[in-house]
Amino acid sequence: MTVAVVTFGGSNCDRDAVRALSHVGVDAERVWHEDGLPSDVDGVVLPGGFSYGDYLRAGAMAAHSPIMNDVRDAAEDGVPVLGVCNGAQIGCESKLTPGAFTTNASARFQCESVHLRVENADTPWTAAYQEGDVIEIPIAHGEGRFEIGEERYDDLVAEDRVLFRYCDADGNIIEKANPNGSRGNVAGILGDRETVAVMMPHPERASLPDLGRSVDGQGVLSAFV
């Protein structure tokens, strides 16, 4: 099986994603966005980076790249699609997932390790964890504050579509553990179907044991196995 990691101009986590996926036993390769999505892909990753220099809004330009029509079709066919960081911004801008990721409350780029609480373990992306597990994964973003209208937020929660929330080391969902001011400390969500997910933290940066850090991100990537 092959997972396509879509490279846009300005993507910079595409190689990391391929390496991390390979490490968990998933065959993955980079696909240049202008070449379109191969018809036989078994999964899609929208990787992190700064596609189109974050012009207009992070992810806004890439969301309208023609390959996103292929990605949308694949998602509708049930192909798993994961957007990470800039890929999450692209996911929301292209309406694969609800809400928007916008400027951090601090107005600064934040690059640090964070704790996430698994809110729903009954999805392909979180099946490796138990609900309530606290995992450690790094973030690196300037526009990661999850915003969504109050009603739609309530729907998202009611439909159990929040995957991860920022928390402290003990799993408490508190303001102090919220690195970017996201509504409800939300770090990752599902799209209309559970095979589509976006998250701001980087699971591919917490997957290779050689880095000497947490490998808690492997669980997310193993959704493609």
Partner: peptide, 8 residues
């Protein structure tokens, strides 16, 4: 479709 994001 592009210049604004209706969510925000």
């Amino acid at each position: 479709r592009l210049l604004a994001n209706p969510t925000i």
